[in-house]
Write a protein that binds this DNA or RNA. Structure first.
Length: 586
RNA sequence: CGGGGCGUAGCGCAGCCUGGUAGCGCACCUGCCUUGGGAGCAGGGGGCCGUAGGUUCAAAUCCUAUCGCCCCGACCA
């Protein structure tokens, strides 16, 4: 492709809205063009890179028996009502009516549609297992799109769904998908960290998110440097350290004491007032879980994990309680306390024990309670792990090291769905087993955001000058930068373009721009191999080869060029195939 | 949805406080010249100052409303 015809319009300066590297370079490099918040067109370069990612995904999924399909984005609402998601999902799901006033949704994922297909066609155990996948547009009215392609409202997702005769078969299949995911990300040049993810109300027996460690990610996960335990902070369990002795012995506990704390509003203020550190306080937070008021209580040095609390309560909808709700129940926002209230479900975190004294709110303005003893001053009935794990908490898996908290981008998610969508009270999908008895089909589902994967590669592979694509997903393999427009230079560049074009994807920069412009553009768009043709080189019959990733420069006689390039590409491609985590294939 | 910031040429910005003929750099077009890291000279085109009201003789500038975009948070199958 000739650069002058390639619809590439790079930007000298980064548009001001862009802050993360992938966002900046995607815009500057003419890969994407923004249409509205979280909506992007893919320009020719971006489109080519995305198509290459899709090809890798197809190869890996086909290799584990996947069958590609395409399902509609417009779905009848009826189907989504059957699984309950029409009601359970908030504004993120776009709902609308057609001209006949029939209700529809724009699919944000395709469990309903694919399960409907399975219901129609899976009759016998002979039809199982089967894995269907598609690479299709997903629409989600995200509350806050951000960072270019990292979080958008319309994107292409590879979503795969597997159907199994029983949980055992799903458990057997799941590692194959797990490893296909590792291979897909590795082939894109990324080392992904699989972490345990929340399964919450979804039930099922397991879920993994594949994270790319990145400061610009929006997810947090913990990692144990000793045993490798890793999990989303929403789910991760750490050892909660006991608190240092506070001078009082529980056995001879002093009586509950009400203390006036006029004007003391903040935790910091209370700590000064009582001359006590955070862990001596009870922190109570009020939520409304599916319409029911719930008080969550954690030790003062922890915070409530909304995900863990929702999972514990099996709640579909969990929101902070508004002050009005609290007043109606006789509770006082800001001075919430488990002491002396009734008729409200209270969940205590496991950090709270009946052996320590605490300071708590008094449920009335400007009053706190001292010497609060769980078990004596309130019933310590419902205890669960509802606190968010913290950096430095001891690993609960091995007990050997302190957990680290990392930021990451979620590249993909695999999920043992179980029978959430196939159960009798959902879409009721059954097959006949060998004995002629009806059994419920068991499902798994697996997703990868394609454009996010592209952005993630750039987050990881770039320098100050621009992107540095691995060969496998670069929009072109080679860029020929013709410097100078003397006839013999042009002739040489044209010759190389014609010659190399048969075996490689070549972008030929034929513009009559100054050398600086061409070289900067070549760096910016991250083509792995750059060939320079100039008057000086032409005279000696040489071509300059520069490898984008390493910056290595070689001068090569024209007659040796093809062989040299093949050797270079072999090396570049092998260096990806040989990454250590490729050995994790099952 | 809460907090903050920004809307002036394709991009980056100045002008706004203190109202009075809309500017700069890059990009774009024409010509000459130049070709190893975003060249030079000359000429040229491009604007409903986000939108709508209001104040005023006069509004990019002051007031009100509204829309859009970005960042932080909440939320996120």
């Amino acid at each position: 492709m000739r650069y002058s015809q390639a619809f590439i319009h790079t930007l000298f300066e980064a548009p001001k809205e862009a802050e993360t590297p992938s966002h900046i370079f995607l815009l500057r490099g003419s890969f994407v063009y923004p249409l509205a918040a979280g909506l992007y067109s893919l320009l020719p370069l971006g489109h080519r890179a995305v198509e290459k990612i899709k090809r890798i995904i197809r190869e890996e999924l086909d290799a584990i028996g996947g069958l590609e399909v395409t399902m509609p984005v417009v779905n009848p609402a009826e189907l989504w009502k059957k699984t309950g998601r029409y009601f359970n999902i908030g504004d993120e799901l776009i709902r609308f009516k057609d001209r006949r006033d029939r209700q529809f949704v724009l699919a944000m994922t395709h469990e309903e549609v694919v399960t409907d297909m399975a219901k129609q066609f899976v009759r016998s155990y002979r039809d199982l297992p089967v894995m269907l996948y598609q690479i299709q547009t997903k629409i989600r009215d995200e509350a806050r799109p951000r960072a270019g392609l990292l979080r958008v409202r319309e994107f292409q997702m590879k979503d795969a769904y597997s159907f199994h005769p029983d949980f055992e078969d799903l458990d057997g299949y799941y590692p194959r998908m797990f490893n296909a995911y590792l291979r897909i990300f590795a082939r894109c040049g990324l080392k992904s960290t699989p972490i345990e993810a929340d399964s919450g109300i979804m039930g099922g027996s397991g879920s993994h998110e594949f994270m790319l460690e990145s400061e610009n990610g929006e997810d947090h996960f913990v990692l144990c440097p000793a045993c490798g335990y890793s999990a989303n902070t929403e789910k991760a369990v750490g050892v909660k350290p006991g608190r240092p002795p506070c001078g009082e012995k529980a056995g001879e506990a002093p009586a509950l004491e009400k203390v006036s704390t006029p004007g003391v509003k903040t935790i910091a203020g209370l700590m000064r007032f009582f001359e006590a550190s955070e862990e001596h306080f009870l922190k109570a937070v009020a939520y409304v879980a599916d319409g029911q008021l719930v008080l969550a209580v954690v030790r003062g040095d922890f915070s409530v994990s909304v995900t863990k609390l929702a999972a514990h309560l099996k709640a579909v909808q969990l929101d902070y309680a508004v002050e009005k709700t609290l007043l109606e129940t006789g509770l006082n926002a800001g001075f919430l306390s488990p002491v002396g209230i009734s008729g409200v479900r209270i969940v205590f975190d496991t950090s709270i024990t009946g052996l320590e004294l605490y300071i708590a709110g008094a449920n009335e303005p400007d009053m706190h309670l001292k010497n609060v003893l769980p078990g004596r001053d309130f019933e310590l009935k419902e205890r669960a792990d509802i606190a968010e794990v913290r950096e430095g908490d001891r690993c609960s898996a091995c007990g050997q090291a302190d957990l680290q908290i990392k930021r990451g981008i979620e590249l993909g998610h695999t999920f043992k769905l179980g029978i959430k969508y196939t159960a009798g009270d959902s879409m009721d999908v059954t097959y006949l087993n060998g004995a002629g008895e009806p059994n419920t089909v068991v499902m798994g589902c697996y997703g990868i955001g394609v454009e996010r994967l592209l952005a993630s590669v750039i987050e990881r592979c770039h320098d100050a000058a621009g992107m540095q694509f691995p060969v496998a997903i670069a929009p072109y393999h080679i860029i020929i930068s013709q410097l100078g427009n003397q006839p013999e230079v042009v002739a040489m560049a044209e010759r190389l373009y014609a010659q190399l074009g048969s075996s490689r994807e070549v972008l030929y920069d034929d513009r009559s721009e100054s050398p600086g412009v061409k070289l900067k553009d070549a760096d910016l768009i991250g083509i792995p191999v750059r060939l320079v043709v100039s008057r000086k080189l032409e005279k000696s019959g040489d071509v300059e080869i520069k490898i984008r990733q390493t910056g290595e420069v070689r001068i090569c006689p024209e007659r040796d060029l093809e062989a040299t390039l093949e050797a270079i590409f072999k090396e570049l491609e092998i260096s990806i195939q040989n990454l250590p985590y490729m050995d994790e294939r099952a």
